[in-house]
Simulated assay, not measured.
Amino acid sequence: MADELELLRRADPVPPDGPHFGDGPLDHRAERRLERLLRQGRPVRRAPGARLLWGLAATGAVVATATAALVGGPSTQPALAAPRPLAVRAHSVPVPLTQLAGLADAAAAEGAPRLRRGTHVQTWSLGMADGKPPVTLPEERVVRWRADDSRTELVVATDPRHPGRPVLTDTGGTPTPVADGHVLSRTTYPPSWSDAPPQAPPPHTPAALRAYLAETVRTDPLSTPRLLDAVGELLNHWTLGARESAALVRVLADEEGLRPAGQVTDRLGRPGQAYVYAGEGGGGRRMLILDPRTGAVLGLETTFTRDEPAYGVRAGDVMDYSAWMR
């Protein structure tokens, strides 16, 4: 028991500044991390000072992904290098969020698709350590819920930018290459339910959805970075329907600091409209990618805005990226 307690103290799978601190249930990422730690039977060493790299309120989530101290091993492939940020298409016309909200409202009038519990997401997370080159840890996660409120979660190592090449994973506490499509975990969770966000179904009116998102990250009033954090939490639990997506675009349209940037092609090859928030204090740059017809969230990218020589990171390197699918 003493070893397990020490393991949990060092790993801190639920940091005190995380959105789920308190009496609420763990989110999917925290549950997975806790399960991995208990399987490993030893503490995972984090890169010293990694929290200092995160000036945004997404600190807890990113530290959870940039966990392992990288050691020498097989030579890395180009697919394992830190990806460059998405590029806005030259001379493309930025679409204001208010205009996109009108398109999303029209799409929602048909009533489909509908809200679905569960998620399908691909993520790219940057692993860092003192004196070691940063590496990108890409994976794909599918969560499906059953009628009895139990759920299954499948996690595989994959990078669609470079199909067939080795993929780095840190499931054993040290990044190692595995085959593209390698199953990292296949888990079935017992029935569970909560009436608190983000486990509770999201509403489909803008005012109610904004209150829901504020409760998700336990921050009111919501700043733009915390709102984007809440959007990520929501989409890691639910696949939004047309009405919920339309309401979300309305919430975003009322937010200050999200600048329309133009057209992009996301990391899964989908066309999107980009909206950028460049926070103060050098913490990072956030890019939200929305479907240009329906307003559905396709992706969310965070990039460094300054060099961090101790970790081999340069301004423009991607800290974290998520691409959500139906």
Results as ranks from 00 to 15, higher is better:
residue 128 M to N: 03
residue 98 T to H: 05
residue 89 R to E: 13
residue 91 H to A: 15
residue 98 T to C: 00
residue 129 A to M: 01
residue 88 V to P: 07
residue 89 R to C: 02
residue 117 R to Q: 14
residue 125 S to M: 09
residue 126 L to D: 02
residue 94 P to M: 06
residue 128 M to T: 14
residue 108 A to L: 04
residue 99 Q to L: 13
residue 106 A to F: 03
residue 124 W to I: 10
residue 95 V to F: 00
residue 116 R to P: 02
residue 113 P to D: 06
residue 100 L to T: 09
residue 130 D to L: 15
residue 114 R to F: 03
residue 106 A to L: 13
residue 107 A to I: 06
residue 102 G to T: 07
residue 102 G to E: 13
residue 127 G to I: 09
residue 105 D to R: 15
residue 119 T to G: 02
residue 93 V to D: 11
residue 95 V to D: 01
residue 102 G to F: 01
residue 132 K to L: 11
residue 102 G to A: 10
residue 131 G to R: 12
residue 113 P to Y: 06
residue 129 A to E: 06
residue 115 L to V: 10
residue 98 T to Y: 00
residue 132 K to E: 15
residue 124 W to Q: 12
residue 107 A to Q: 07
residue 87 A to C: 00
residue 128 M to E: 08
residue 121 V to T: 14
residue 93 V to K: 12
residue 114 R to Q: 13
residue 117 R to S: 11
residue 91 H to Q: 13
residue 87 A to L: 10
residue 129 A to S: 15
residue 114 R to A: 14
residue 118 G to C: 06
residue 110 E to D: 11
residue 115 L to T: 11
residue 132 K to Y: 01
residue 105 D to Y: 03
residue 130 D to N: 09
residue 104 A to C: 05
residue 87 A to R: 14
residue 131 G to C: 12
residue 104 A to Q: 06
residue 126 L to E: 09
residue 100 L to P: 07
residue 94 P to Y: 01
residue 103 L to K: 11
residue 94 P to L: 09
residue 98 T to L: 08
residue 126 L to V: 13
residue 104 A to I: 03
residue 129 A to P: 00
residue 123 T to C: 05
residue 96 P to R: 05
residue 132 K to C: 10
residue 87 A to Q: 12
residue 110 E to C: 04
residue 124 W to V: 15
residue 103 L to I: 02
residue 93 V to C: 05
residue 88 V to Y: 03
residue 95 V to L: 12
residue 106 A to I: 05
residue 124 W to K: 09
residue 109 A to M: 05
residue 96 P to E: 03
residue 90 A to H: 08
residue 91 H to C: 08
residue 92 S to G: 03
residue 87 A to I: 11
residue 120 H to W: 09
residue 110 E to N: 10
residue 132 K to R: 15
residue 96 P to G: 07
residue 131 G to V: 11
residue 125 S to A: 15
residue 120 H to L: 14
residue 89 R to H: 05
residue 128 M to V: 15
residue 121 V to A: 14
residue 107 A to C: 04
residue 97 L to H: 04
residue 105 D to I: 08
residue 93 V to M: 09
residue 89 R to T: 15
